[in-house]
Structures are given as structure tokens and as C-alpha cells.
Amino acid sequence: MAVRKFKIFRFNPENDSKPSYKTYEVECLPGWTILDALNEIKWFQDGTLTYRRSCRHGICGSCAMQVNGLNGLACELQLAPYKKDPIVVDPLPGFEVHKDLVVNMEPFYEALKRVKPWLINEDAPPQRERYQSPEEFLELDNSIACILCAACTSSCPSFWADSNYLGPAALLKAFRYEFDSRDKGFEERREVLDNKHGLWRCHKIINCFHACPKGLNPTGAISKLQQKVVTEKW
């Protein structure tokens, strides 16, 4: 048992005129994650603390937040590597705060919808499934593993500057379909990709790559999409 200090972003728009930080002391067990500590606070110290969480094993993407300035999943971030107290917990930057660590994710989903994240193929469906070879599947380069937690988009300075920017998550999703051998939706997605709020807003800051809790590479995906758009055009 070790007592750790957590400095947590608090904001309740109904009562507070501006956000503040509140520090909590928590007795933590070895092997605990940030989420365990947040649960301990909410369940036994201060029930008003608000955050999203669901599966607690890194696949639902609900508990993305900023810990000591870096985005990640609270349920995946072990306490041990954080040597210094207090550990500072903030909501995802770049989004409007609803309450405490809960942000408005609507702009994130809206951007996702704009890239039409589904298989577009008007050909007559074959007798059985649309076949894809293992090599063609490898082209997608794990991009299918995105859990839509928004850690990447929220870490992107281009997104902070331009709320209409698609952001790394939506562009990674676009990559996932554009480089799918079965997809033929390039013409439908072209306008939203080849756009100042689309591909060309990315300045290769690579925060998204560092933020992704699944180890995906949205920056690399954006580069490949940029190449594709340019090659198709000229």
C-alpha cells in the first residue's frame, strides 16, 4: 500500500464559473492503474467526480484522458511508472468539457461520419464473401484495430487549431477503407480528404502516433492517403 496524490481537473458548468484542480490522496495497491485510483476516489471519497469508463481492459475506448500531459487510456496506464506525486489528470484536450473528465465527443464522431467509414462497393455481390488475400489484408497494417478512443485526435495541435479538421482517427479510418482491396469508394471520399480540413491540415507532428494506446500509426496512414490523392490527381 502506498499513498499517492492525484491532482484532478474539476469543472461543473452548473456551479463553477471556471475549472479548477482538486487533489486527492489515495491508498493504492501495487499493480493499480489510473482508472483504479479514479474508481477509489469516486466510490469512497468523492462521488461527484465524473469520468467515463466501461470495459476496464483497453478495448472500449471510453476512459481516454490526459495523464501528466500525455493522452492515454486510464485503464491501461499503470501507476508504477509515475514516480512523482501528484499525478495530474485532465480531460482530453481540444474538446468541450461537459463535466470533470467527460468531454463532448460529437465533433469526433461527426468527423468520422464525414469519411464514410464503411465498405463502398457497388459491384454485384459475389456468390459468397468478397475475397481478400492475407497479403491484401496486411496492407491495412493493423489500422482495423482502432478503438475510437479519441486519444490521437485530441493530441493533435492541428485539430486544436481547426475544429473542422478531420483529425488522425477519422483519417486512419479513411485509410482503413481506402487501402482495403474490396473498397471502391475513393471518388466518394475524395472531396472530404482532398481538403484543407482534411489531409492537407496534417503537419506531421506525430503526437497521434505517440498517443495511440493501441500502437497504431495514424501519421503513416495520412502520408499514404496523401500519396494516393496526389498520384490519382496527376
Binding site: N195, K196, L199
Partner: peptide, 10 residues
């Protein structure tokens, strides 16, 4: 801000 941007980027 204009639209497009492929040419400028390339």
C-alpha cells in the same frame, strides 16, 4: 482558407 489543397501541398 480556400478548398482543395493537394496542389499546394504537393
Amino acid at each position: 482558407i480556400g478548398s482543395g489543397g493537394a496542389f499546394a501541398w504537393y
